[in-house]
Design a protein around this nucleic acid. Structure first.
Lengths: 158, 158
DNA sequence: TATTGTTATACTCTATAACTATA
DNA sequence: TATAGTTATAGAGTATAACAATA
């Protein structure tokens, strides 16, 4: 609201720092997941399956933003460890309904505890209040550009 | 400063949002760099070389946190486009001194303009003030854990 | 004919080992 | 012998194409 002739400095670039923190989080997450026999991808899949309460493989591929062929391999891993189940859908026998097993649910809970500890460590330079601010800023940024991306991708409706 | 019996909520997890924004930034950066014949890796290398004013390949590998063998390939690309020069160090002929060419400097400037525009777009959901806050939080977070990482890695001195 | 899941395959990125030349 | 750079090669991660079963 000031009309002083202040020179408007452009904001600093966040990209490099963002990438650096993400890489650090990724590396440490891998470390704590390895003893549980999981890779980050596996964990994301398990989380999505719990949140959706089961899914077809194609829907899962869309949600994970992965190629369908890679979802097959991912689910093969998880099924081999008895963490998920594939059942033919009774209404459309082409579809596989994928669901978490009890073993999968329990392992997911353990993994989430481990990952929470990783975040606490990586963000230990910030106070709880600062972390909350960071969260809100990131959410605002992702949400805005989500809408933008949607507008770009879809022609008429959105 | 309040002594009310407020329940301390743990802060939200930032990891997922951080990863999402980073991926978005990465994808769009690739898009704008492709017409310039560059990949993100190339740009990071060019930036580091300018900031250091030249470097040996090993030092470059350390700075980029990449394997030395991959730096060779990276530099081969850049040299083929006449963006960098390798010269034998006169004091230690095992070393290659790597420096930007004039062509490299000019292309770097163009790439940075393009990337600034990408950041402006990806962070368009935030005001300049919010972007600055985000920058400061990210910087504080990365710096703290940098020190931590250093303490972990080095036994006595640090 | 289109859709779901699968396999086989190729392409990229990254890391390991062995080689050359210099010290 | 150790170091700087290079090459060849193998291992992940990911994407494309063809195929089987079902709609």
């Amino acid at each position: 609201m000031s009309s002083l002739p202040v020179v408007n400095q452009p904001p600093h670039r966040c990209g490099a720092l963002l990438g650096q923190l993400t890489r650090r989080l990724q590396t440490r997450s891998e470390s704590v997941l390895t003893p549980l026999g999981l890779r980050p991808r596996h964990l994301i899949a398990l989380t999505v399956l719990r949140d959706l309460g089961g899914s077809s493989q194609q829907d899962l591929a869309k949600t994970l933003e992965m190629d369908g062929t890679n979802v097959v391999g991912l689910l093969n891993d998880l099924e081999a460890e008895n963490l998920i189940e594939r059942r033919r859908s009774p209404v459309d026998r082409r579809r596989h309904v994928v669901e978490l097993t009890d073993v999968g649910i329990k392992l997911l809970v353990r993994a989430e505890f481990a990952l929470a500890a990783v975040e606490d460590e990586v963000f230990s330079g910030l106070s709880d209040e600062q972390r909350e601010t960071l969260y809100e800023l990131l959410q605002q940024a992702t949400h805005k550009t989500n809408i933008e991306a949607c507008r770009e991708a879809l022609p008429p409706t959105c």
